[in-house]
Amino acid sequence: MLTLELNHLRKEFKNKVAVSGLSLKMEEGVYGLLGANGAGKTTLLRMLCDILKPTSGSVLCNGAQIREMGGEYRRMLGYLPQEFGYYPDMKAERYLRYLAELKALPPELIGDKTEELLRMVELYEVRNKKIKTFSGGMLRRLGIAQAMLNDPEILILDEPTAGLDPKERIRFRNIISSFSRNRIVLLSTHIVSDVEYIADRILLMKQGELIRQGTLGQITEGIRGCVWECVAQGAQAEELNERYAVSNLRNCGDKVSLRIVAEEKPMQEALCVEPNLEDAYLYYFTVKEGVGAY
């Protein structure tokens, strides 16, 4: 059973603490890491990939320190950075082959694996085009392909669906779902729907700390009774919008339908409704500081 254990992981930079004393135990499955910009998600991911040295604390893979394992740990890893690098004048297939060599793939497998992944992300037709000609979505798909070259046991993806259209996003979700058996997949994203359908566990990160973790059900259960739907008109709607965290706002003729996240009932006629992950995100990152974990 593959395990990744984070023990009081901390990263300080000159002017801020990006990750503060984070502890977590991960086993096989898909983890969705949600948090705003500046929450420390990318720093956390970089420490997990053995790119950044922690200020204190450690990451253990099956009980061994990843800093000491070095290449043997990175052999198990697939990583897609938020801003992933490429040589602009390199052709897509050559780029994947190069990375396959860096990941020490057995030579006999490189050709087949490259082709398989290019087909999977629907870039096979453009495999001989220079990467600088690719659109944002194509770049992202290429990035996903390179992350999976070595069939990693641990797959870490930072904003993987940025720039993908809805169809590509769904396709990506399906790829990850089928890939995640017997592996650890960690998805860091702003996009709640990326994570809502495929994550086994959700991690909410704010200002370098893990403020909440659990299954989708556990996270949303935590804010039961805090999500309201109501209909208001004109000035009242505006006032509500300003006063409360609104997760959805829709115009219906001359009225406005609002979905509000708040601890108290926003107006007399408001109905309490079933919370979803987006509501939870809004609650923990706007309405309240959450403490504790499941």
Binding site: D50, Y79, P81, G85, P88, A104, Q146
Partner: peptide
């Protein structure tokens, strides 16, 4: 410096063949 100019450094740092070795 080209490695870092193209942001390949971060990606290569997570590979078996580490960017330092490259």
């Amino acid at each position: 410096s080209r490695i870092f100019a193209n942001h390949m450094g971060e990606l290569e740092a997570a590979c078996f063949f580490h960017v330092g070795e490259i």
